[in-house]
Design a protein around this nucleic acid. Structure first.
Length: 410
DNA sequence: CCTCCACAGGAAGCGCAGGAGT
DNA sequence: ACTCCTGCGCTTCCTGTGGAGG
């Protein structure tokens, strides 16, 4: 009896699944399509910079690529790497290998060097060795090999801001270590001011060539969405209005195509779950809300305990005063709360950093303001819904009781 | 124009975790 | 068993600062 029901459910689900999505995976951010609409110029330029020297047996220049998030920097690089491997490599006398490291994931000196070791299949532990050892293993391998090695560091700003540019400096000079492989570097960033953080020597050697990616316009985003929808979705499963809305929302956010595709995918999932025939504007709008909420939950839940306490204090004070809160008030109340629950409070200095972290995470808005005679402070307010925040904080059982008390305040 | 508040945020360094080499 | 390595969260100590009020 129950197995019949299960069969029914599976049938129903697969029926629904097939209604909207033809190939859902092609809407995911890590999918690289064969064609990259509106990036011909960039592909051509990057290919030219790399391929021209390779064909003559020279080392390609280091390249610095920048542009807003979701403007196709990574996709273009991967695309060109693929072309290089498939079309160009067979015509070269020497082997060419290329590798992309995502510095958002690997954001320490150690992990970057370990990633390169991994790429060369040199076994390395994920902690324990000195940086010099990791580096010299790479050099040793590059002496054993020949040909070309092109290393792309994606979201390089993440790593440099955290760990400095010392390793980058060493990498830019690796060709003078007496190695037999010619090494080129590509730095990719969406921070337009990133270059200012760099040591001048690194700056000049990394940007032998530069490539700027301009944001997609709403019209271009629409083209891209239609092209992708044709692969990912069934023919009559989406409306023009829905596509247009995705495009115009993303266009407002610096022409971020990843955002546009995510919206369309989540909107499709909503339509599918509701058993609707087509993706409409409403689905897109709901998708936007859900994505926002999920993001917040994810961030709040994974926060360290004391960051949650700080967040809780801000929420409580805002509920009490109906105005923006100042750093001093937050700290005072935070210390009080810590005493109450028998926790050793962190220092004001650390809490100051926590406030910045919460600001960066988009959970609070902290504006540095001078009140003249009465000092300088941050004016702090929640950037997201108070009740949603309390609900997320309540997930932590250590905070459950306190949240309960605060919730009952009004 | 100067002062001085209430913090911001840089620099250094500490203790610990987690692992390698010896 | 012992030393050495880096990353991480944190503290301690510190200098810097926009602008209202004198």
């Amino acid at each position: 009896m129950s197995s019949f029901k299960l069969d029914d459910l599976i049938n129903k689900l697969s029926e629904r699944t097939s209604r909207i999505f033809k190939n859902r995976e092609t809407l995911r951010p890590d999918y690289i399509p064969d064609e990259l609409p509106h990036r011909d110029k960039e592909i051509y330029k990057l290919a030219e910079i790399l391929f021209h020297p390779l064909l003559r047996g020279d080392r390609p220049s280091n390249i610095f690529i920048y542009g807003y998030p979701g403007t196709g920097k990574t996709a273009t690089t991967k695309h060109v790497f693929k072309m290089m491997k498939e079309k160009l490599a067979p015509r070269l006398q020497a082997p060419v290998s290329s590798f992309i490291i995502n510095c958002k994931i690997d954001d320490t000196n150690y992990r970057i060097l370990k990633e390169i070791n991994d790429f060369f299949n040199i076994p390395t532990p994920h902690t324990g060795l000195s940086l010099a050892e990791l580096y010299s293993r790479i050099v040793k391998e590059l002496k054993r090999r020949n040909g070309y090695f092109i290393l792309a560091l994606d979201e390089i700003d993440n790593f440099v801001k955290k760990s400095g540019d010392e390793i980058l400096y060493k990498l830019t000079r690796i060709n003078s270590e007496g190695i037999t492989t010619k090494v080129s570097l590509i730095g990719i960033t969406n921070d337009l001011h990133f270059k200012e953080y760099l040591d001048p020597r690194v700056k000049s050697s990394l940007s032998e060539e530069e490539l700027v990616f301009t944001p997609y316009t709403a019209e271009q985003l629409r083209d891209i969405l239609y092209a992708r929808a044709r692969i990912a979705l069934f023919e009559n499963s989406y409306t023009d209005a829905a596509i247009n809305l995705c495009a115009s929302i993303a266009a407002k956010e610096h022409g971020d195509v990843r955002r546009a595709l995510d919206l369309l995918r989540v909107a499709g999932e909503i339509a599918e779950r509701r058993n609707d025939e087509k993706i409409t504007e409403d689905h897109v709008r709901d998708a936007m809300k859900i994505m926002e909420r999920d993001k917040i939950w994810e961030i709040v839940i994974s926060l360290p305990f004391h960051s949650k306490l700080v967040l809780l204090v801000i929420t409580a004070l805002q509920q009490k005063f109906f105005r923006e809160i100042m750093t001093g008030e937050v700290y005072e109340e935070y210390v009080r709360l810590c005493k109450e629950i028998g926790q050793e409070p962190l220092t004001a200095r650390r809490v100051s950093d926590i406030l910045n972290e919460l600001d960066m995470g988009g959970l609070i808005k902290a504006t540095l303001t001078s009140k003249g005679r009465y000092g300088r402070t941050k004016f702090i307010s929640l950037r997201i819904d108070k009740d949603e925040m309390l609900r997320a904080l309540k997930e932590d059982e250590r905070l459950e009781a306190i949240v309960q008390v605060i919730s009952s305040w009004h």
